[in-house]
Amino acid sequence: MTRVLGWLAALALAIGLVMAFAIAPREVTQGNVQRIMYLHVPTAWVAYLAFGVVLVASIAYLARRAAVADRVAHASAEVGVVFTGITIAAGSIWGKPTWGTWWTWDARLTSVAILFVMYLGYLLLRGMIDDHERAARYCAVLGIVAALDVPLVHFSVYWWRTLHQPPSVLKPGAATMPPAILTALLVNLVAFTLLYVYLVAKRVGLLQQETEALAS
C-alpha cells in the first residue's frame, strides 16, 4: 500500500513539474521566477496540514492513550518540519529577486520561523526523554500548543502590515489568478499532499517496527 502511494506521489510530482514549467504561462509582472510559487505554496499547505494532523493526533492521544495516535503525531511533525524548512528556503530564494532581500522580520515570515522552531523543539523533546509514555504525553501537549501558531501564520497577512502578499487560494471567495496558473498550482498541491501521505505512512510503519524491536 505504501509502495503504491509512493509511486502515485512520484507520478503526481512529475505531472506537477510539467505543469509548472511547460503548461503554466510566464507571469507578466515577475517573469519566470514566479514558478517558485508551484513549490512554495504547496509545501506551505502541506506544512499546515501536517501540523493540523499533529494537533488532532495529539488530542486523540491525550484522550485515549492510543500508541498509534502518538506515532501519527510524531511522523507528521517530522514531515511537517521538513516541509516548513523547504517553504522557508524557497520563499527566501523567491524573496531575493522580488523583494530585494533574503529575509525580513515581518509578521508572516517571523510567525513561520517560530512555527519551525517550535516543531524542531517538539522533535528534540522526543529525543531527550527516555520514558516513551512520558515523551508521548509531553509532546502531545507541545504539539497542541505549537499548532495554535498555524492560524496566526495564515492570518498574519491580514492582521499586520507585511511584505508578504495575502493568500490567493486559501481565502474566502474565488481564487484571484488565471485558470492555467491555478490549475498548475492545484495539481502541485495534490502532488505534494500525496508525497506527505506517503512519507507519513512510511514513517509510522518504521516507528511501529522500532517499538516492536525495543520491546523484543
Binding site: 521566477v33 512554495h40 509545501t43 521538513v82 531575493k96
Partner: peptide, 22 residues
C-alpha cells in the same frame, strides 16, 4: 522583470536535495 532562472533552479534543487535526503 528579468527571469532569474538561477533562483528557480536553486529553489527546486534545494527541495529535491532535502526531500531526497529525508
Amino acid at each position: 522583470m528579468s527571469d532569474h532562472w538561477a533562483y528557480v533552479v536553486a529553489a527546486y534543487a534545494l527541495a529535491v536535495v532535502v526531500l531526497g535526503a529525508y
